[in-house]
Design a protein around this nucleic acid. Structure first.
Lengths: 142, 142
DNA sequence: AGCGCTTTTGCAACAAAGCTGCATAAGTGT
DNA sequence: ACACTTATGCAGCTTTGTTGCAAAAGCGCT
């Protein structure tokens, strides 16, 4: 982890009006070092026993509320989270990229450059958010 | 539940080479009576204690394997299931419609007539399946 | 209808994921 | 450095999902 990233983590937390704690810094470091989505169990594996399960849940929830991370829908029972791009915030959340889940390595990644196409709903439906999850084989696994 | 539906349930099970049991018939009835996706806890609410939790899990897994139902990704911890259209089967599964989750009533429905638009992945990615989940307010809740 | 064989079911026990309340610890502004 | 607020850790609990095994139900055959 470079000093540059450390500094930007501090900045990010401050911008969200969150106090800077070991847990939050560590979890954000993990997100930045991992190019992809993390589920809860990842944190225990990556960070060991260094902090309590409950703290991880609460930290993730806080980050969600502040728009620092977003959740990715899955067909299994765990919830995956990924860092939001810099132009997301608590009240203005635009997360219009495609999520890709690799069937080989299991990793879920955000394809930032793949736009979600426009979807036309039937009459009477109001659209707030669109999640697209593509499954297949990623460029690393072929 | 009409006799017509009862007959078609029997047919459906037979076509999938599954024996016809009370649990399977009852669960399929619940699917047919509910215009939308069901999560596990729904079955306990709708069917009461009439069968064991484990049986429900195993029945749903069997239906998934046979292509009778499909799972819908969610950002919460439970898995939702919906009936597949008649032209799905174990080996030829085409479930190219949009799923809609209403933020008011919480219901998840399949918008059979809303096609999933084509998505162009970056080079090196192979696409097997696309899931689209739109959240917003449904036509019933406005 | 009855018989044997296979498949399903129900039970018990377990594992993982997630939440809540409360006391302690750490961060923040002055 | 101090008081105040916020975050963490612990204990305990709920929900969700799984596995192994014995009993029960469904199915094909006569």
């Amino acid at each position: 982890m470079s000093n540059k990233n450390k500094a930007s983590i501090t900045e990010l937390l401050r911008a969200s009006k969150l106090s800077i704690t070991d847990t939050r810094v560590k979890i954000l470091e993990l997100f930045m070092n991992t190019n992809g989505a993390l589920e809860h169990s990842s944190f225990e594996k990556l960070a060991g026993q260094s902090f309590d399960r409950v703290t991880v849940y609460r930290t993730l929830q806080t980050f969600l509320d502040k728009g620092i991370i977003h959740s990715i829908p899955t067909t299994d029972t765990s919830i995956r989270y990924a860092l939001c791009k810099s132009d997301c915030s608590e009240h203005d959340h635009h997360d219009h990229h495609v999520h890709f889940k690799c069937e080989e390595c299991g990793a879920t990644t955000c394809l930032e450059d793949t736009d979600v196409p426009e979807i036309h709903l039937p009459k009477g439906y109001a659209m707030h958010n669109v999640d697209v999850v593509v499954s297949g084989v990623c460029n690393q696994c072929r």
